[in-house]
Design a protein around this nucleic acid. Structure first.
Lengths: 179, 179
DNA sequence: TGATCGCACCTTACTGTGTAAAGGGCGCGG
DNA sequence: CCGCGCCCTTTACACAGTAAGGTGCGATCA
């Protein structure tokens, strides 16, 4: 009895994410993660040979990869919708933001950027303009969420700023310059 | 002989910054910092009672506080000039970026934001518009530099992207939506 | 002058971290 | 029934931050 389900890379990552969401990035520890998985810490290395480095990389990929969904409509509207969804995703895992913004990660953010870039390209912009536009939008979005996450990670937030409104207002200003 | 100069908070912070710039944030250690200062690690606690936490806080304040300089000229030009200077400052200490973007810091970024906000206010924008504008510009700037820093912290950069050009192009698009 | 005191620094030691290395044990093919 | 290989555990190490208390030296004052 009490058959625990098998240890897999997916289960490790999801548990780690859950741990971060519940207790904060600072408390994500190999041993604690092991405890949550009902396994010794070293068992994790069997599925993630490069240890914590690899774990964090996977976490970034899991949270930060969210390309613009295909579909029709005005480019600006599609971008606005996507940006809102992306921000929600990121704010849903504020603890991972430091990793996303900080750690070099080949691919995770790239795929997202590329999808934005392609949308802009399809909307008629030149390759160069699309590249600048995508980079600008992603910079704003990540910067904004990072600032927001910073503030929210304080204790009970005494500042009841209208983050949503501020984000949307800024987003419109940025989009105006892009598409 | 070999009188070492007295240990002060300023000397500690500058040495720490130098250490980060030279070896990376990951190698900033109390003991290593002590070595650089020719002092035992615990001596630092006499000048920074809250230890590493306080040290990092001071580092952020030292690097991230750079208000818009007073002066005349078109608001947009002043903002463009300031943004370029701020980015240079941040890129001059890429190792500190993770701290700036990540750690809650009461004041350091705030004073900078406020100075931008006041410039916009003086340029004729309403309080609300100025707040949104300042927040948007700072979000873009920090996001852009964070992405840039991430990429540059890779080994010898094989990607010879024109970061400066991209930053300036994006900056103009953002400024167009603000002032 | 000599005793006293307190500042600035050092010594020691503890907890917690990531992870290398090697040891089980259990199921499965021969 | 044997041995092998996959997963996991055990053990151990170097290094992190820092609490607690000791130490020496210059300044102060009788």
């Amino acid at each position: 009895m009490s058959q625990r389900e098998p240890l897999t890379r997916e289960r490790i990552i999801e548990t780690a994410l859950h741990l971060i969401d519940g207790q904060g990035l600072g408390r994500l520890t190999m041993r604690r993660l092991g405890d949550s998985l009902e396994v010794e810490a070293m068992a994790i290395y069997h599925h993630l040979p490069h240890g914590k480095e690899q774990l964090l990389e996977q976490l970034i990929a899991h949270v930060a990869a969210l390309p613009v969904p295909p579909g029709g409509g005005a480019p600006r509207d599609r971008l606005r919708a996507w940006a809102g969804a992306y921000r929600d995703r990121l704010l849903g895992h504020v603890g991972v933001m430091p990793l996303i913004v900080t750690r070099r990660n080949p691919g995770a953010l790239l795929s997202t950027t590329v999808s934005v870039q392609e949308l802009l390209r399809a909307a008629g912009l030149s390759e160069a303009e699309a590249a600048v536009g995508a980079h600008t939008l992603l910079s704003y979005l990540l910067g904004e969420v990072a600032l927001e996450a910073r503030e929210r990670s304080a204790g009970t937030s005494p500042d009841d700023l209208d983050w949503d409104g501020r984000f949307l207002a800024g987003l419109d200003r940025v989009l105006a310059g892009i598409a």
